[in-house]
Design a protein around this nucleic acid. Structure first.
Lengths: 220, 220, 220, 220
DNA sequence: TATGAATGAGTCTTCATTCAT
DNA sequence: GATGAATGAAGACTCATTCAT
C-alpha cells in the first residue's frame, strides 16, 4: 500500500519514517561537502555514495542546487546552535576562563563552517542563494559573529574589558584567527591525504587567548 | 622562416622575445582569476580575452592546470614581494606607526591573495599542486606570514613588545582578521553585483590596530 | 476483501463497476490531449490530473502508448459519430442549406480531430499503431470522409449536382479547407497564448459554401 | 594554419568553403526532419547521421533549437521561392491551364511544407519561434497563400473569374485540399514504411481543378 | 489493486584537449 | 608555431516504467 523504500534504506534497516531518504541524501551530501568540497561534487557522486539511483535526487529536491543549499544550510544552523550553546556567560567565571571558552567555541565553529563554505566562492548563483537564505533567518553564521560582539560588549559594560577596545574588532581578530586555522588545517589535510580532523590545537589557541587577554584587560 | 607570432602580439607591437605569448597568457589568466575567480574560468574565455586562438595554450603549457598554477604562483610571489617591501622596520618609528603600516600591508596582501586562492579549495588536484609548488620555493604566501612573525619577535627583542606574547599568535590574529575582511568584501561584492573593490576600510583597520597595540605594549 | 478502489473514485462516488478507473484515465487523457497536445504529455501529468497515483496506469493499460491510443481512438469515434448525426440528408431542404449544414459539420469535426492528431505526426510508432487501429473498424475518421463523398454522389443521382464534378474532389476541398482552418486556429491560439477556442467562423464558412455551390450546381 | 576540417567533409571531398559543416548539418537536419519529423529528433541522431561528433553542433549553432529553426526556415523559404516561380500569370494562357498550373504548384509546395511543419505543433517554444521568424520576412509560407489570393483577385479584375467568389475562400479550398493530400501521403508512407515520395497524383488534381473551374467561371 | 518512491536509460549541453591546415 | 573547428567524455536533469508495501 505504501510505495517501496530505497534498497539502501531496506538493507540498513533504517528508519521507516517519511523523508528518510531525503535526510539520507542530505547527510551524504554534507559528508561529501565536508570531505571534498563543492567543486567536484556531481549528482552521480552523491547518488553513488548514497547507494541510490541517479534520479532519486529529483524526487526529493528541485535539483542539485536545492540539495546542496539544504545540506549547507542545515549544517550551518547546527554549527551556530552548537556555538551559541557553548559560548560563555558575561560576568560569570573569570575573564580568562571565559575567553578561553569563547575561543574554543569559535574554533570549533570555524572548523565546521570553513570546509563547508570554502567551495561556495566563485559559484555566484549558489553563493547568492546561500547568503539570501542565511540573511532571512536568525541562525546564519553571522549570528555567531554577532553573539561574540555582544559578549565582549557585555563584559565591557561590566567593567571587565577596557572601554577603548572595539568589540567588533575583537570579534574580527578572534574569528579571523580561528578561520585561518580552519583553512590551514584543511590545506594540511588535503596535502597529507589525511582527511581526518586534527584534534583542536590547544597550544596555539592558548597563545591567542593570552594575547587577546592582554588587549582586553583594563589598565590597572 | 622563423615561426609565426600570434596576431595579438604583432598588433600590439609587443616584444619579439621568446616567451612573449606565454607571458601574455599568464597575465590574462591572472586578470580573469582576480576578476571572476577560478570556477567559471574556461580555456575558451582565456583565449578570447587574450585575443588568441583556443589552441595556443597547449604550445606553452601542458594544459589548463599548468597555466592556472603558473599564473597563481607568479601573482602570489608578486604579492609577497610587495608585502615584504611594505612591511615596517623593527625599531624604526613608533610601535603604533609600525603596527598600522604592518596591518595595512597585511590587508593589501590579503585583498590580493584571497580572491586568487578562493576558488582553489575543494579542487583537490590543483590545490595539492599549488601547495607543493609553494613549499618548494621561499616566496610563497607563508613567507609573508613568517616575515610578520619575525617583525614581532624583533620588536620583542628590542623591548617594545611584551615578552609574554607569542609572535606567531599575533601574526595569526592579524592575518586572520585581514583575510576575513578580504573574504567578506568578496562576498559583499558578489552579493551587490558591484565588482569594484572597496577602498581599504581605514576605520576598521584602525580599531584592529588599537586592540593589537594594547596586547603588545609591555606593562609600564 | 475486494480490491481497493482508487481514492478519486471513492471521493467522487463514482460507479463501482469494473473499469471505472480505466474510463476515468481515458477521459482525463482526452482532456489533456485536447488542451495541450501529445508532446508535453507525461504519465505523471495524467496521474496528477486524474488525482491518482503514478502507477495505476499500468494496472489498466500496457503502457502510456496504449492509454493514449485508446483515448485518441475513442475520441475519434465519438467525433465521427457526431459528424454522421449532423450531416444533411440528400434531397431534403435546398442544396444550399444542405451544403451549409455539411460544411458546418465538417468544420466541427475538423476542429475536434486536428488538435488530437496533430502531435501524432513524426511519432512513427504511435502513428502506425493509430492508423492500424483505425483501419480495423468502420468508425475511423475516414468514415466521415466517405460519408461526405456519398452525400455528394447521392445529390448527383438526384440531379441536384452536376454530373461532371467528382464527389471525392468535392470532399477533399471541403475537408481540406476545414482542417486548414483547424490548424490555423490552433496556430493562432498557440501564438496568442489564448487557449480559448474561437467561435466557429461563420463568415469564412459562408464564403466557402458560396464557392462550392457555384461548383456543384448544374448549368441551367 | 587553418583549423582542420571535419573528417566527413575530408572524406567526401566536400567544398572547402567556410560554413561547409554548418550547411552539412542543416542539410542533414532537413533530411531527418522530412523523413521522421521533429519529435524523435535528437542531437545525437543528427550527429550520427552527419558522421560528426556530438559536440560540433554547438560550434555552429546556439543549440538544437537554432539548428532546427534554421533548417526549417531555409527549407520553407526555398519552397516559397519555388512556388512563386511556378505560379501562373493572370490573364496569360487560358484560365483552365492557369488553374492547373496553380494547383500543381500548390500541391508541390504542400508536399514539401507539410512534413516539415507537422512535428512543430504542440512544441510551443519552437512553434512560437518559427512563427515569429516567419512573420518577420516576406518569404514565409503565408506568402504563398497571399500570392494565390492575389492571382485569383487579378483574374477577377480581368473578368475571367466571377465577381461573387471570394478569392480567399478559393485559396483556402485549394491549399486545404493540397495539404490534406500532403498529410495523407505522409500517413500512407508512414504506414507502408515506404519513405519515398509518391509521384504527384495527377488524376486527383485534375478532378479538383475541374471543380474549381466550375466555381470560378462567370455565368455566361 | 492502488500507491508513489525508486530506477536508469536517454536528453541536451559544456568544455578541455587534439590536430589538420 | 598559430589557428580554431572537431572531438567526446562528462554533467545536470527527465520521465516511462517497476515494485515493495
Amino acid at each position: 500500500m505504501s510505495p517501496r523504500r530505497a534498497k539502501v534504506l531496506r538493507d540498513r534497516g533504517d528508519s521507516d519514517s517519511p523523508g528518510a531518504l531525503r535526510r539520507h541524501l542530505i547527510a551524504v551530501t554534507q559528508h561529501l561537502l565536508a570531505a571534498h568540497g563543492l567543486i567536484g561534487l556531481t549528482t552521480r557522486q552523491i547518488a553513488r555514495e548514497a547507494k541510490v539511483s541517479d534520479g532519486v535526487l529529483y524526487n526529493h529536491f528541485a535539483g542539485k542546487d536545492e540539495l546542496v543549499l539544504t545540506a549547507l544550510g542545515e549544517r550551518a544552523t547546527e554549527l551556530v546552535r552548537d556555538f551559541l550553546a557553548a559560548r560563555p556567560e558575561p560576568g560569570a567565571a573569570t575573564l580568562e576562563q571565559n575567553l578561553a571558552q569563547l575561543a574554543r567555541a569559535v574554533l570549533e565553529f570555524s572548523a565546521g563552517i570553513v570546509p563547508l563554505v570554502t567551495g561556495l566562492f566563485g559559484q555566484a548563483d549558489l553563493l547568492h542563494a546561500f547568503l539570501s537564505g542565511i540573511h532571512a533567518d536568525q541562525v546564519g553564521p553571522q549570528a555567531a559573529f554577532a553573539a561574540t560582539v555582544e559578549y565582549v560588549a557585555a563584559e565591557q559594560h561590566l567593567g571587565r574589558v577596557a572601554d577603548d577596545v572595539d568589540p567588533v574588532a575583537v570579534a574580527q581578530l578572534l574569528f579571523g584567527a580561528c578561520q585561518l586555522h580552519g583553512l590551514v588545517s584543511q590545506l594540511r589535510s588535503a596535502e597529507d591525504e589525511a582527511p581526518e580532523q586534527d584534534a583542536v590545537p590547544a597550544a596555539d589557541l592558548d597563545a591567542i587567548v593570552v594575547v587577546l587577554l592582554r588587549a582586553l584587560r583594563p589598565v590597572r
